[in-house]
Simulated scan of single mutants.
Amino acid sequence: MSTPRDLMIVALDVEPSRPVERGDLSLALAGAEVIDLLEAEALALDGDRLVPRLQPALADHLLDEAASLLVRQQPYESLEDWLWRRGRGLSSAYLVALEEDGQVTWQRSRWAPFGGGRTVLADSDARRRSAGRWASDEPVLSALAAAVGIREQAYGAETGVTVTEEPVLTVLAAVHDAVMELEAVRQRRAIEDAAFDNVWRGGG
């Protein structure tokens, strides 16, 4: 299993501290991919640039896909650009992958026979592994979960368990900034929509 898959399972399995937005989760998944690719030495960070290395064979096909999508010409791609490009619709891709692996099923509601329902996680080794990582407050998974609202705050110095690797800290900070930027966009659109509705009602 991979960090993004663990994050996706946790997102489905844990009651969040606030509603989890798909866009936020997709950005965090893209960041989780970078962290795993750093660990696999498939890339390195040069400042905020993703520098590809040799592409090793990875057990996870979505991580393989991510590695194949790295920009391999200088000046390379910035971490921020990667999060937005790779993150587009990524939560849906990971949900489909979990379904294909039998990790997730859809439980149809009798009140919505032609659609709807909810996702149900299978009792699997993958789920137990993710749950164990979550229960141990593994700092990377905890920080990614905090960024999207699955947990209230990231693990910090007060707990005695923190992320210390500089490249990983850079990725986590970029994910946090991207999620905040996306939230600002949502708020701006909500204000614009409300203003439009007011004008429409006034003109009606």
Rank of each mutant, 00 (worst) to 15 (best):
S2T: 15
M8Q: 12
V10Q: 14
A11L: 07
A11R: 04
V14P: 01
R18C: 06
V20T: 14
E21A: 12
R22M: 09
L27G: 07
L27H: 09
L27Q: 10
A28F: 09
A28M: 05
A28V: 05
A30K: 06
A30L: 12
D36A: 04
E39S: 15
A40Q: 03
A42P: 13
L43W: 03
L50F: 03
L50S: 11
L54V: 15
L63A: 15
L63V: 08
D64M: 09
E65R: 12
A66H: 10
A66L: 09
S68D: 01
S68I: 01
R72A: 03
R72M: 01
E77S: 06
S78Q: 12
W84R: 15
W84G: 04
L90F: 11
S91L: 02
S92V: 11
Y94V: 05
A97V: 11
D101L: 14
D101Q: 13
W106T: 13
Q107I: 08
S109K: 03
W111R: 15
W111F: 14
A112I: 07
T119D: 03
V120H: 07
V120Y: 02
L121P: 09
A122Q: 06
S124W: 01
R128A: 15
R128Q: 14
R128H: 07
G132T: 05
R133Y: 01
D137F: 14
E138Q: 07
V140M: 04
R151M: 02
Q153I: 01
G156R: 05
A157C: 02
E165P: 00
E165H: 09
E165S: 04
E166C: 02
L169V: 14
V171Y: 02
L172F: 12
A174V: 05
H176W: 06
A178M: 09
V179F: 07
E181G: 07
L182G: 11
E183P: 01
E183A: 13
E183I: 08
E183L: 08
V185R: 05
Q187E: 15
A190L: 15
E192W: 11
D193S: 06
F196N: 04
F196I: 00
F196Y: 08
G203N: 11
G203H: 07
